[in-house]
Structures are given as structure tokens and as C-alpha cells.
Design a binder for these strands. Structure first.
Lengths: 121, 121
DNA sequence: TTACAATAAGCAGATAGATGCGTCTAAATA
DNA sequence: TATTTAGACGCATCTATCTGCTTATTGTAA
């Protein structure tokens, strides 16, 4: 539903929020499948019904620079008989954005304006 | 259904067969999901209806030493937007076993007898 | 020959993540 | 305020692999 520039969507805020809570508990990395389950039970599925929605939200947050990700190696996943996970971490930018949202401010300074970088002539 | 010692089951032969055909065409590695589809269409699903069956057959063949496997790194899989694959190769033992089956012989010499290695006293 | 035991096959579902497509909403514009 | 439209959401499905439980079949022993 058309993003208001500099703002985050409820699901995106929930993801960052869960990530920050986890980080304060010492777990600074999380993966999509796990956070989906956390959010589902925490919000009583109000914010998330389908996995596809979450994975795309994670992708958006990474593009925005609020999350960064790395792939778990097969060496970690294979012996446990499960697929490799993509592990996300809240970046400093993400942490700051979350702090602003919690203060009721706009999440992001508008670093790039939509018409920037193209037509200064 | 209780294996006759030294023999392979139809599905196991089909896997080794497909692997050997692929190897002769220059593809010496294959993964479960792909070979499932090959076998499904080749045998008109007579030998395989469920993935679980195939993956367990692959596991048995690896334990028997007819196949060996390695895990594809996330570096290969991730950019293509798919999970990492487990890549299997027919071993020399596997190739020889297949040759014997094709000649109508027993697939494996009975290297280990069930009551061996324990009570020679 | 029959009964038993071993075990492969099938079914269902978990784990983990991605994409295509139609819909619907909210933000921007007129 | 009314209209347009970007784009997020949900659904379905695909890519891959693995495991638990039940059922069916087969080889072997009695």
C-alpha cells in the first residue's frame, strides 16, 4: 500500500522490534522462519499470515540497510538435517531507525529523494 | 521389504542407472530433487511416488558406498534464489555394482557377513 | 508352508526460503 | 474531495531436503 517516504510499515517495525529484543537478549542473529513464528504468536497473526510476505519484508529491510544478512554454511545446517538458513542482523542504521520510531519520529531521514541523482542539469 | 543380501532394490538400481547415464553425458553430479523428477517421468512414477522414499534410498546407497555426497555452498545456491543442494556422485564401487546388475549378477559381493567380526573365539 | 521379523514404501508434515500473480489499500496528485 | 496508482499483501506454488509414523512386502527361520 504505497509507502510514505521515510516511514516503515507495521510488519517492518515488528521485525526490527523483534530483532532488537533478541539482540538485547544476546541473540544478534535470527532467520526468517524463526522470526515468522515469533511474530505470528506475538501479534496473534495480525501482522503476518503468509511466509512470502515476511521474506519480502526482510528483503526490503535489507535493501533499506536496516538489516544485513549472511548465509549459514552447509557445515552448520547439514549435520542437523535441515536446510541452510539466511541469518539476519539489525544494522546500526536499523537500530537507530527503530529508536526513532519508538520515539514517534519518522524512521528514516530521507537520504535519497526519488528525483535525485539524475537530472541536476 | 527386507533386502536380499547383496542385492539392490528396483528404485536403487534406477538411481544408479540414472546417475551412470548422467555421468556418461558429462554430468557426474546430481541432486535428489532433480533425479526424482527424472525417475518419475522415466518410470511413469512406478518406482517413486514420494520424495521421502527417494531421499532415504539415496541415504542407503551412500551408506552402502555406491554413492558419495557433498553439500553445495550457499555461494552457489543463494544467488539463484534456491536452497542449497546435496550433490551425489556414483562411486567406483557403485559403478561396478551397476555393471554387475546389468549383467544379471548380484550387485555386491558380500564383504561383511552379518555374524562376522564378533565371535571367532 | 506358515509365521515372524526386518525394512522399504507411502503419507504427512516440518524446515527454510523464494517467486508470480491478482487484489486491495493508502498515499499522492488533480 | 475525488481519482489515480504505487506497491504491500495474500495465496498458491516451487525449490530442496529430512523425519516420524503406519502399512505393505519380502526373505528367512521354524
Amino acid at each position: 500500500m504505497r509507502r510514505k517516504p521515510g516511514h516503515l510499515l507495521p510488519l517492518e517495525i515488528a521485525i526490527c522490534d523483534a530483532a532488537s529484543v533478541l539482540a538485547q537478549r544476546g541473540t544478534d542473529e535470527f532467520h526468517g522462519y524463526a522470526i515468522a513464528k515469533v511474530i505470528k504468536q506475538a501479534s496473534a497473526a495480525r501482522l503476518l499470515t503468509a511466509y512470502g510476505t515476511l521474506y519480502r519484508a526482510l528483503g526490503r529491510l535489507e535493501v533499506m540497510g536496516l538489516l544485513e544478512s549472511r548465509w549459514e554454511g552447509a557445515a552448520e545446517a547439514a549435520p542437523r538435517g535441515r536446510p541452510a538458513r539466511r541469518l539476519y542482523r539489525l544494522t546500526t542504521t536499523g537500530d537507530q531507525a527503530l529508536a526513532r520510531v519508538r520515539r514517534g519520529e519518522r524512521a528514516l531521514e530521507l537520504a535519497e529523494r526519488p528525483d535525485d541523482g539524475l537530472a541536476p542539469a
